[in-house]
Design a protein around this nucleic acid. Structure first.
Lengths: 338, 338
DNA sequence: GCGCTTTGCCAAAGCGCTTTGGCGGACGAA
DNA sequence: TTCGTCCGCCAAAGCGCTTTGGCAAAGCGC
């Protein structure tokens, strides 16, 4: 564990010069630079990040806060975040909350202990605690797919409204008029936006919402949520399902298959996200595609821009486009009601 | 950003005392302790991690190195790693290599810059570079599901041999005798172990291997790899597929469905991992279950034990049990060859 | 009442880096 | 030759914490 002092001694210069040779912040003569380089190589010197962090007052580390990394959406988000961070010389600390607000708070503290320079926050709405929201306001933080009411926090989101509308239009176009909505518990922002926009467009188009069922983003919760409604599908009362994410849609497909309800003959299902699995499940899932890695990448760039003084972290929203991907889980409604 | 000195001043004591009050490493009278606590609260003091790291020579951060976090297996691994780390007061930095050895090397450097205390390495075999393997040997590092030949590095693995055998026995028991193997490019350790054990048991049982096709862990690569063999399935020559991970198996299911090959009537498919999607795909996938989060958790505990001097990082392997989960993608072989 | 051990606190050094002001020496211009 | 400029390097302070040795006061036994 060579230190800068040892390198300096070996090269016959001062630590200052070594530092400058390394950072390029001041000129160092080529001759000396070479001696320093040689000394570093011989000693296998690598600067200590802790010491740098302390001296610079910045760690070049950001935190990514997500509920559960094993949910496909968040994993893809993480990929985008990490890629963008690395590109700019930052590392990312993975923080999973498991939907637990105590852990959220714990992680938000990390910027106070200066363990990280900033936070990409994708764990749904944070505790609305007053004290906390004050903290948030003063913290380099960008929200992903979430919008905190009344604050001026930066957020990067997909165009959830457009997505909801797209889904509604697709189903309306196929002749569907009565739908089951699969939402997510805790009503995260993106979920409620998707539902609200879907519903508005749906009712404008003459549709009715049979019911709204709640899950928690996973396949199993989707299956569970849809199960009580199987009878309505069998009866032909309800002919469509709109799920606010793909995993729950896939869980629904599974449950419907088990119950002998055919997709898309008896009921059409549309998801949201377009995760990998959406293409490979059966029937392949019609869904609203959002570019999740890009979401992560854009958020991260915004955060780092702010950290480096290249931009402000104003309350402005960046909204990314979405698009409908029609696959095999949706089809025209058949016949009338029985 | 209050410092320990400010807290000390406010409480009317020395920084030393504040430190002791906080860490409990020496006695501090209750009266003083309370004054310190009050001062900290008023100032909103949180100790600086960078300063602590520098003083202590340890960061309480570990790195998790994986090829791609959006591959389900690695996401679940990350979940286990993070959970174990948090439980012991550590943070984890996410390092994705994208199968790129330059980035691997870059990340391995992080322990030299003392940005992290140790590494959980799950990115397949590292570059076999001599220089590098010397580094590895001297580094607090544990391998996940990988074994580096000839070194004495700690590794935590699933019982891949048993898994391979289990898969073979399951298919043999259903009467299959000719199989297509779906392996992974770059021949990572776990992949080759699974294949070798499968093949040994398979041939012992009188089976033959029609071919081995190669993918790269993803659904799409699985679909691609299986495509050229569709004719043999149609002809009834080959009646089974053994994939070394679930995602490729799921890709295979997709491709077979597209090609009109029925599963399990025409061909049986078995995967490996038992990721979430395995249950929800169609037909639901028979697979070898390994407990991936536990794999991560055990690795992480081993690493942290070593970091804290509680254990040695010897070359001993920890091997976790696996089990076969029979679902709908496998069935008895039908009739003879045409 | 004397020495002895605790007890509770403090001073100062050190972790390894960055940064700033300064200072000789070389060089060009007058 | 002399003065003014750069150029290239160094000394020292500071980032915020932990740790160790020490020291006075308090408590104890005899």
């Amino acid at each position: 564990m060579a230190s800068i002092a040892e390198v300096a001694a070996r090269a016959g210069v001062s630590p200052t010069t070594v530092s400058h040779a390394l950072s390029g912040k001041r000129r160092v003569s080529p001759a000396v630079k070479e001696r320093v380089a040689a000394a570093m190589a011989e000693l296998g010197y690598v600067p200590s990040r802790s010491a740098q962090s302390l001296a610079l007052g910045a760690t070049r580390v950001i935190a990514l806060v997500v509920p559960d990394i094993s949910i496909g959406y968040f994993a893809e988000l993480a990929r985008g975040v990490e890629a963008a961070a690395v590109r700019r010389g930052y590392n990312v600390i993975l923080c999973t909350t498991g939907f637990d607000s105590a852990r959220e708070l714990h992680y938000l503290q990390m910027v106070h202990s200066r363990a990280v320079d900033g936070i990409v926050y994708a764990a749904g709405a944070p505790p609305t605690d007053q004290e906390l929201s004050d903290l948030l306001g003063a913290m380099p933080l960008v929200f992903v797919d979430e919008e905190i009411e009344g604050t001026r926090l930066k957020s990067v989101i997909s165009d959830n409204e457009a997505g909801g509308r797209l889904a509604a239009e697709h189903l309306l176009g196929l002749g569907h008029r009565n739908v089951l909505i699969l939402g997510a518990e805790g009503e995260p922002f993106s979920s409620s936006r998707r539902i609200a926009a879907f519903q508005r467009r749906w009712e404008d188009g003459g549709g009715t919402v049979a019911a709204t069922a709640w899950g928690r983003f996973t396949e199993s919760s989707g299956a569970l949520a849809v199960a009580p409604h199987v009878a309505s599908f069998r009866a032909g009362d309800v002919t469509a399902v709109f799920a606010i994410n793909d995993l729950m849609a896939i869980g629904a497909l599974y449950e419907l298959r088990r119950a002998g309800v055919r997709v898309p003959e008896d009921v059409s299902v549309v998801g949201f996200d377009d995760v990998m699995a959406a293409q490979y499940c059966f029937p392949s899932l019609t869904t609203v595609r959002q570019d999740v890695p890009t979401l992560g990448q854009v958020s991260t760039d915004a955060l780092i821009d702010a950290l480096e003084g290249l931009a402000e972290l104003d309350g402005e929203q960046l909204k990314l486009p979405v698009g409908l991907v029609a696959r095999d889980s949706t089809g025209p409604v058949r016949g009338g009601r029985r």
